[in-house]
């Protein structure tokens, strides 16, 4: 019995979050935001967004509105952060070394920066496109 308790305590010591507490807080907070953003996005894109046959007009029309543009840009940044931070947690969980963690952290950060820059430029360019 004492041995089992010792093993439990040892296991408890080894229990660590794959990502830090602050990052876990950001992950939870971004998740809460995404539930709201995604709900609006699904409604606008699939229920009240017009016919899929004329989707281009709907998308460009929405992005021309500064409020919708801001909405989609924030959504893009938050959802990309949430997804990549979650991926980092999964990779960390595999028990990689501290050096590898650092590399993964920077690689994920680089992917995040490239993704949000690309998505932001794409949104801004599309917002300027003419509706046929």
């Amino acid at each position: 019995m004492a041995n089992l308790e010792a093993l439990d305590k040892e296991a408890e010591k080894k229990r660590t979050r794959p990502i830090g507490s602050i990052q876990w807080l950001f992950q939870a907070a971004s998740g809460a935001f995404i539930i709201f953003f995604l709900g609006v996005h699904l409604y606008v894109a699939h229920i009240n967004g017009g016919s899929p046959i004329e989707l281009f007009d709907t998308v460009v029309g929405n992005l021309r509105d500064p409020w919708w543009l801001a909405f989609f840009l924030i959504f893009l940044w938050v959802v990309t952060y949430h997804g990549l931070n979650g991926l980092k947690g999964i990779i960390y969980e595999t028990g990689i070394s501290a050096k590898a963690r650092k590399f993964v952290s920077w690689a994920i950060f680089a992917v995040f920066v490239v993704s949000v820059i690309y998505g932001t430029i794409l949104s801004l360019v599309v917002a300027q496109m003419a509706i046929p």
């Binding site: 281009f56 460009v60 991926l87 993704s115 046929p132």
Partner: peptide, 25 residues
């Protein structure tokens, strides 16, 4: 996450113009 990047790829087709994008969708 994989779908997110597929979504980026599909939305990139907006740059090809209305006809091409609507045909794709």
């Amino acid at each position: 996450l994989l779908y997110l990047y597929l979504h980026f790829f599909v939305l990139s087709n907006l740059l090809r113009g209305g006809v091409a994008f609507n045909d794709l969708i």
